[in-house]
């Protein structure tokens, strides 16, 4: 029985290909509700119960009361008068969150990436050297294209920007080529689900 309902709802979703319609809208809203409900329950179970209730009530870890109270200040969003108090836990999450981000981000995505670009050519084949030079040229021209957008009147600078565009188009083309495979995979999966449901009905 449930297989039939699932199949019908899947067809409702696919009906969007014929244009927006009430069947699709209904199913879409149903998914939003179910997904939010499921997320809420999971967060309640994995979060509130496991990270707050059990440590406090069963394990006597009283320190959780302080972040718990701070977290409960989010409830002030419901009050017009005390709304500003809900900013306190947000300030804590945001402030410490961005502070924690700075160092590791710089190291992971800037320093180590620079390190990988500035390689020592000794012992490399000619092909590898050329490839590293192309990586460097693509990197610098792309950065140039985005960072120095004001001076495009000079021919030399226009040329640099155009080289940047050329490499970017190669990269975007590769991403697009990859994306096609991703999208087709999603459809293959749905057809698989269709087959499974139909087999289990008959």
């Amino acid at each position: 029985m449930v297989e039939i309902i699932t199949l019908i709802l899947m067809l409702f979703v696919l009906s969007f290909l014929m244009g927006d319609n009430p069947f699709f809208k209904f199913t879409e809203r149903l998914i939003v509700g179910i997904s939010a409900g499921y997320g809420f329950l999971k967060l309640f179970d994995d979060g509130f119960i496991k990270k707050f209730w059990i440590p406090l009530v069963q394990e006597g870890q009283y320190w959780v009361i302080i972040p718990g109270l701070l977290g409960m200040m989010f409830f002030f969003t419901f009050s017009k008068k005390w709304n500003f108090l809900a900013k306190y836990p947000l300030a804590f999450l945001l402030g410490t969150g961005v502070g924690l981000e700075i160092g590791p981000r710089i190291e992971t995505s800037i320093l180590r990436q620079i390190n990988a670009t500035a390689v020592n050519f000794s012992g490399m084949s000619a092909g590898q050297v050329i490839n590293y030079i192309i990586i460097l040229v693509a990197l610098l021209t792309t950065m140039y294209y985005f960072l120095f957008v004001l001076r495009r009147d000079r021919p030399a600078e226009k040329l640099i920007a155009n080289i940047g565009i050329f490499f970017m188009m190669l990269g975007f083309g590769a991403s697009f080529g990859y994306t096609i495979m991703g999208r087709i995979s999603l459809l293959i999966e749905v057809i698989n689900i269709f087959f499974e449901k139909i087999t289990s009905i008959f």
């Binding site: 990586i135 990269g171 991403s175 990859y178 991703g182």
Partner: peptide, 23 residues
């Protein structure tokens, strides 16, 4: 597959030991 090409710089730098892209 949609995300795969974004991770090649990390693969090339050795920060990722390997990468599976899409199906």
């Amino acid at each position: 597959a949609v995300m795969a090409s974004e991770y090649y710089p990390y693969l090339e730098s050795g920060q990722l030991k390997g990468l599976l892209g899409g199906l």
